[in-house]
Structure formats: C-alpha cells, structure tokens
C-alpha cells in the first residue's frame, strides 16, 4: 500500500512537471528557443491566485490562467519576436533576462512576504477541515483531494493537447511549423500567429500547474518558479525536447523518481541530485532524449 501511495504521489508530482515541461517543449519545437522565463510564469500565476482569491476561488483560478496566457503572448511580442532570426544565444540570454525581470518585478510589487493561498480550502471548506483534512480514504488506500484533482487535470490536459495537435487545423499547422518553419510559411501558414498561440498554451499550462501547486499549500514567493522550472526543463530534455509525448513521459518519470527517492530516508536528502543525474544518464545513453528524433542536417 505504501508503494501504491508513493506511486500515485509520483504520478501527480510528475504530472505537474509534465504540464510545465509541455510549455518548454512546445515553445522549443515551434519557435526553436529555450524559454527560460517559463518557470517564472508559474510564480506569476501563483501571485494572481493570491491577488484574486479574496474575490472568489474560481475567479482566481480563471484569472491566473487567462492572465498568464496573455503575459506569455506579451513577453513573446516584446522580447522574443524582435529577435526572430537572431542567434539562438541572443534569444537565450533574453529569456534569462526576462526571467529575472519577472522575479524582480514581483519582488517590487508584492514585497518579500511569503503567501500560502489555498483555493481548495475555499472551494471545499468543510472537506478540507476536520476530521478528514482533505483526505479520501477507501479501505487502507488513501489519497489527498488535491492529488486526485491534479491527476484528473493532468490526464485531461494530456488527452486534450494530444487531440488538439492531432485533430485541429492549428495543431497541424503547429506540427508543420516545427518541422520546417520556412516551408510552412510559404504554404500560407501565419507563423507569427502559430508562435503566439504556442506561447499562450504553454503559459496557461504553467498557470494551471501553479494552481495545482497552490492546492498543496505551496509557499508563494518570487523565486518559487525556479526549481520547478528547471526540473520541468530537465523532464523535457529527458523525454526529448520538442516532443509532446516526450515531455509527458519525462515529467512523469521525474516525478516518480522524486517521490520514490523521498520514500527512502537514507537517499531522500539526495533527491534533487538523483533527478539531475538521471538527466545525465539518459543523455549519455540517448543524446536526443527518450522520444527525441535525430535531426538530419540539411545539406
């Protein structure tokens, strides 16, 4: 039973990583850039929850997602779009700059206070309080409500995104742009719009991830996006950056490794080290990541 609980926790933690990793991998696949400001979108999303929670938890969740999507579009427009076609290094440095800018702005506006908003407590005040404390028990098996919601959300996002990419016109255009931006544009696809939509989707997924972390009473502070951001990036690389199923698999593997490592008191302190070692091992064995495709150089 211990094993099952750890496994389920791993799935939910990994699912959140996967959700963030999807943003990294989609932006990389389509705009061919590493958006290191992606982690900080999580932070902005969490602050939006802090800001809007007094009004209504549902409003707060929707506001966080919508405003983060708009923020993603805005950042792309003013910071990355002018650099379209510039060297990848220039774009990378810009992304790191945007990341620090977001953190500093948050520090300047919100101050150093750490918040602990929990929309879930407001949504289900009875269930989250005594005597259940938000834990669903079925026999010996128990699962936290927040974990259950996370698992459901992650599953829905994964299915929805896969369908979106496979079935819709925009999804098809996205695949085409990621394969060959120039050719796609010459076939009449508005690449700017596709990149904009990609940033919007990536950022709203990051916001959803921040909503799910606040369900677990995470501390909301200006640097809260850094570690999940880096871990999700690791997950994206493990799965094969640019690949959507790769990001899902990478995220879940990383979450499982994290939770199982923490389950053993002796190796628990080394959890983060184990996670990043996993990246090194995967890259040694398969440099393109698990589902990454080898790119043939065009001659």
């Amino acid at each position: 039973m211990e094993f099952l609980n750890t496994f389920i926790n791993g799935l939910s933690v990994g699912g959140v990583y996967a959700m963030i990793a999807l943003g990294y991998t989609m932006v990389y696949g389509i705009a061919k850039m590493l958006n290191f400001a992606h982690g900080d979108i999580i932070m902005v999303g969490a602050y939006m929850i802090v800001l809007f929670l007094p009004i209504n938890p549902i409003v707060a969740i929707i506001a966080a997602i919508v405003l983060c999507a708009l923020l993603g579009i805005f950042i792309e427009k003013i910071a990355y779009k002018p650099l379209r076609g510039a060297s990848p290094l220039a774009v990378l440095i810009t992304a790191i700059g945007v990341s620090y800018l977001l953190q500093s702005l948050a520090q300047a506006i919100a101050g150093p206070t750490t918040y602990h908003p929990n929309p879930l407590e407001k949504l289900f005040p009875k269930f989250m309080g005594e005597p259940t404390y938000g834990i669903i028990k079925i026999g010996a098996f128990q699962i936290k409500l927040s974990t259950l919601i996370t698992l459901i959300c992650v599953a829905l996002v994964m299915i929805g995104l896969t369908l979106f990419v496979k079935k819709t016109k925009i999804g098809r255009a996205m695949v085409a742009v990621s394969e060959d931006k120039g050719a796609a544009q010459l076939m009449g696809i508005n690449v700017n719009n596709i990149i904009m939509i990609t940033f919007a989707i990536g950022s709203s997924l990051a916001a959803l991830a921040s909503v799910l972390t606040t369900f677990e009473s995470a501390s909301v502070e200006t640097t809260m996006g850094s570690l999940p951001g880096i871990k999700a990036f690791t997950a994206a690389v493990i799965g094969g950056i640019g690949s959507i199923p790769g990001a899902m698999i990478g995220g879940i593997i990383l979450g499982l490794v994290e939770c199982f490592a923490q389950a053993f008191p002796r190796i628990a302190p080394y959890t983060v080290a184990i996670e990043f070692s996993l990246l090194i091992i995967v890259l040694l064995v398969k440099p393109t990541g698990i589902l990454g495709k080898k790119r043939r150089e065009k001659v």
């Binding site: 695949v175 085409a176 394969e179 060959d180 120039g182 050719a183 544009q185 010459l186 009449g188 508005n190």
Partner: peptide
C-alpha cells in the same frame, strides 16, 4: 510569405522541404 501565398503564388523547393514526419 504567407500573404503572398494567399494572394496566389506557391512554390516547390530545390532541395525538397516536405513535412517529413507527417
């Protein structure tokens, strides 16, 4: 490019540029 394509000019490429994984 995409506007010109909408107006009615389409092309192929010297070195084939298909969407290979589609």
């Amino acid at each position: 490019q995409d506007k010109i394509n909408h107006k009615g000019i389409a092309r192929t490429f010297q070195n084939i540029r298909l969407f290979n994984n589609m």
